[in-house]
Design a protein around this nucleic acid. Structure first.
Lengths: 150, 150
DNA sequence: GTCATTTAAGTTGCGTGCAATTCAATTGCT
DNA sequence: AGCAATTGAATTGCACGCAACTTAAATGAC
């Protein structure tokens, strides 16, 4: 004769947010061995994905694309610079802005990185429909949570 | 005449994982002002949720419930102990295991914490069906990603 | 009973996320 | 032109996550 856990607001099993949190942690863990071969962390991989598509953008623009701020990105970009993946230049028009350029090594790395999404899908043995459903729902609540604030 | 971004495997817009990652970051950000009043971080709130339901469990059991390891939990529990929320005792049967007990202050805190889920739902202006869909999908991929490893 | 193995927790080290603050360059107002 | 307000990055400080390792206690094989 246990309590009705389906009504308990503080029951872990009822919380979407905990599922979201656990799924994300598991996802980042799953990426690790794949990205280790590229000498990248998951956030670094995200940064590289943006830069592979849009070379020469600013830290601000990068932050907008990834929903991250300079407090996170500045040290991360310095690490990528140390690895020889990124050049952190300055805009000539506006001395405040950093202009981010990828190196030739980064362009080479892209070829290996292109295999990562498929490797990841092999572990995610879920239907493509479910995954696009998941993406829509995540984008949905992201929008809600951002709108209610900034 | 741009490239077909829907086919580009390294296009950010195509990646479920990035949506998941951004949604989780946004979710944790949204919790912050609510939990600040309880002097808890989101992971600390998760720990307290488990302990409110299951007082007297071990670090191991807590880790199983939250999918976190002692490297994360030990320092977190020490902080909760400093705040007077948790007592980190020892099992008499097995000297290795910590027996975690909540304090009276933690029991009082639970009353305030019970309001948090509803406050959170106010920001998540999404239908309940969508949210339970999201939860199912997250639990789904969590299971897939865990099974493929441990 | 002894010793290798296993197990629970703790420690170390690194890379995030992010709030808060600082700094310098630019913009806007007048 | 002069100066306040704004903006782009960087810095500081704190709390995770987690891999890798260590420590100490318990278990198991013989």
């Amino acid at each position: 004769m246990s309590i009705d856990q389906t009504r308990d607001p503080l029951c872990l099993d009822n919380q979407v947010c905990f599922s979201l949190y656990s799924a994300t942690n598991a996802m980042v863990r799953a990426y690790r061995p794949l990205l280790e071969k590229l000498d990248l962390t998951y956030p670094q991989y995200l940064v590289m994905m943006v830069l592979w598509e849009s070379d020469g953008i600013s830290v601000k623009e990068l932050g907008n694309a990834l929903h991250l701020d300079s407090g996170t990105l500045t040290p991360l970009l310095k690490r990528l610079e140390t690895k020889g993946m990124v050049l952190r230049g300055r805009s000539e028009l506006d001395e405040r802005v950093r202009v981010l350029h990828i190196t030739d090594a980064a362009k080479t790395l892209k070829l290996a990185a292109e295999k990562v999404p498929e490797q990841m899908m092999c572990q995610l043995r879920t239907s493509v429909e479910k995954l696009s459903q998941l993406k829509l729902l995540c984008d949905d609540i992201y929008t809600e949570l951002s709108h209610s604030k900034g």
